[in-house]
Write a protein that binds this DNA or RNA. Structure first.
Length: 278
DNA sequence: AGTGGACCTGCGTA
DNA sequence: CTACGCAGGTCCA
């Protein structure tokens, strides 16, 4: 199937910028298990070619229905973001499956992106279902029930380390409250964040990632070590480390209601914006 | 409200 | 080859 794009979109950047962890580029196509099937996607100019997903799936997952031009125009409020927008135009936030997103970011603490990918892949291999595509094997991300009945000791065999009990706890929460994701969708940002951070292993940063990447809460501004450094050195010129609230609060004040989108564009340019040692 | 140490694991570097 | 440092934080004192 194919789709003619009438809106800005950069597939390569969107799937490789670190918001999601299961996309792999093989022979020019991006593959990932999404939901119950393997998606295979390629972009050539303004045409998207894909298999394994419907038009509606593609539009929804990649957020092609979101008015990106309006958002970029809205957040374009200083020189740094202006250049990030110029370099990364077409980067779109995905709408990730909520449970997978939650567990993935629980796995993201004290790890780099390859390390996160490894842990998520291990969980899928151990507890997901096998899928074949073009002779390759993929694994669905496990359902909450698949993980909820496991002991932390077993889950730890997926090399998730101290996160084992957090993963089991989050799985139990999702399994016992099947409507959890619908509930969070309907909540305000503040209420949704309070709900997520009540889970053990989910602090402000993880909650904001999940709210931004799975629940369309654009007020969520995940502050990791990179973003703290960028806001401290490039925006506030502060000497001492910024508290989470200070950095995120500044971002919302400065960038407005799409501050989360601004964060993602700055994050994509982190190597350039945050020189080591500053 | 704010600070400091412990915590799994994999990977890069000495 | 082994040792150590560090990486998309969170929890607990």
């Amino acid at each position: 199937m194919q789709l003619k794009l009438t809106v800005p979109f950069n597939l390569d950047l969107s799937v490789s910028c670190g918001q999601s962890f299961r996309w792999r580029k093989i022979n020019g196509f991006w593959y990932a298990p999404v939901g119950d099937s393997v998606w295979k996607v390629k972009q050539e100019g303004d045409t998207l070619f894909y298999e394994g997903a419907s038009d509606a799936d593609i539009i929804r997952y990649f957020g092609l229905d979101i008015p990106l031009d309006d958002i970029l125009q809205d957040i374009d409020r200083d020189e740094l973001i202006h250049s990030a927008v110029a370099s990364c135009r077409g980067l779109r936030l995905h709408r990730q499956p909520p449970f997978e997103c939650l567990i993935s970011y629980i796995c993201a603490t004290c790890a780099n992106i390859p390390g996160i990918q490894l842990r998520v892949e291990n969980l899928a291999k151990m507890y997901g279902r096998e899928l074949k595509s073009d002779g390759m094997t993929f694994y669905t991300f496990p359902n909450p029930e698949d993980l909820a009945c496991e002991s932390p000791e077993n889950v730890r065999l997926c090399k998730v380390g101290y996160r084992d009990k957090y993963i089991c706890g989050a799985a139990a929460y999702a399994a016992e409250n099947p409507q959890w994701a619908a509930d969070i969708f309907s909540m305000s940002y503040a209420d949704a964040k309070r709900e997520l951070t009540s889970l053990s292993g989910v602090g402000q940063k993880v909650a904001d990632c999940v709210l931004l990447f799975a629940f369309e809460k654009y007020e969520a501004v995940p502050i990791d070590v990179w973003m703290e450094r960028i806001f401290r050195t490039r925006y506030l010129g502060s000497e001492k480390k910024l508290s989470y609230e200070k950095a995120a609060g500044y971002a919302r004040e400065h960038f407005g209601r799409y501050a989360g989108y601004a964060q993602e564009y700055l994050f994509a340019e982190r190597e350039i914006l945050a020189k080591k040692g500053e």
